[in-house]
């Protein structure tokens, strides 16, 4: 068996009294799409935020290529090749698409002055390659629609040659065609060997795109199974009741 691209072992995170993530262990293989499902407030976003360096885990271990790593900041995660499309998109509304795409990682000369042309050129290429639709690269993101803003966030995550891509509800605001494009994109990235965490409430997308389905409820891991072996009803049962489908429960007991 190959070593997982990313592995989380017994990760915990509490906010005051709320145990948002409790003893969660998940692994991600190269070229694998793992869907993370669960109710609102199940702890999905909290879990992936520990991977993308928003805040450190209270306890537990994160391994990349089998080696234990310490992710203390978004910068650390980016260095490790982890790119995240946050649920909130993490865009600065007052800046334009190009600025947002390179935010925190601007191309500059030796003295820190921005190379706007290079960045605009790079942004244009990425956006075209991803077949995304962004009306104007130089208009402030505030003036864009929800879907266009999402396109900017997706372009940003894919511009820097990620090895691990985390998508927290990436298609929530996209139209049907754009959603389909993102689906194609995921399949393409998978072929290139990226590992992808996909958080989505859209069962159809999840079953079409993922290789494995992992369900969380109230911060705990309910179960993780190959998508092929699950029916949509199984998945719903896990999400709603927070327990493994009967036939798996028997097998693992």
């Amino acid at each position: 068996m190959t070593t997982p691209l990313l592995e989380a072992r017994n990760v915990n995170k509490a906010f005051g009294g709320v145990h948002a993530v409790e003893n969660v262990s998940v692994s991600l293989m190269p070229g694998e799409v793992v869907a993370l499902l669960g109710h609102n407030g199940a702890g999905k976003s909290t879990f992936i935020k520990m991977l993308s360096g928003v805040f450190p885990a209270d306890s537990g271990q994160i391994l990349i290529d089998g080696k234990s790593v310490d992710i203390r900041s978004p910068h650390d995660a980016q260095e490790l090749g982890i790119e995240t499309i946050h649920q909130t998109l993490a865009l600065a509304d007052n800046l334009d698409a190009v600025s947002n795409l390179f935010l925190g990682r601007e191309q500059t000369d030796r003295f820190g002055f921005l190379d706007t042309e290079a960045m605009e050129h790079g942004a244009r290429q990425t956006i075209e390659r991803m077949r995304l639709r962004i009306p104007s690269l130089n208009a402030s993101v505030r003036s864009m629609s929800g879907g266009q803003r999402q396109a900017v966030a997706i372009a940003r995550a894919l511009h820097f040659n990620a090895r691990i891509l985390i998508m927290d509800e990436p298609t929530a605001a996209l139209g049907p065609e754009e959603t389909k494009n993102v689906g194609l994109l995921i399949q393409e990235l998978k072929r290139q060997g990226l590992g992808i965490f996909l958080i989505s409430h859209d069962m159809h997308d999840v079953f079409q795109l993922s290789d494995r389905i992992t369900v969380m409820k109230s911060g705990r891991l309910v179960g993780s199974y190959p998508t092929k072996e699950l029916t949509q009803d199984d998945a719903l049962e896990m999400i709603i009741l927070g327990r493994k489908p009967a036939r798996f429960a028997a097998a693992t007991a």
């Binding site: 993308s52 928003v54 900041s73 865009l91 007052n94 800046l95 925190g104 820190g112 002055f113 921005l114």
Partner: peptide
């Protein structure tokens, strides 16, 4: 307008939380 520092200043002012998520200190 032209320096990374200024870009970060405006990003922090536009949305501090987003700026933090993108790795700006």
């Amino acid at each position: 307008k032209r320096h990374r520092f200024g870009r970060h200043v405006f990003a922090v002012g536009g949305d501090p939380q987003s700026a933090r998520l993108t790795g700006i200190n």
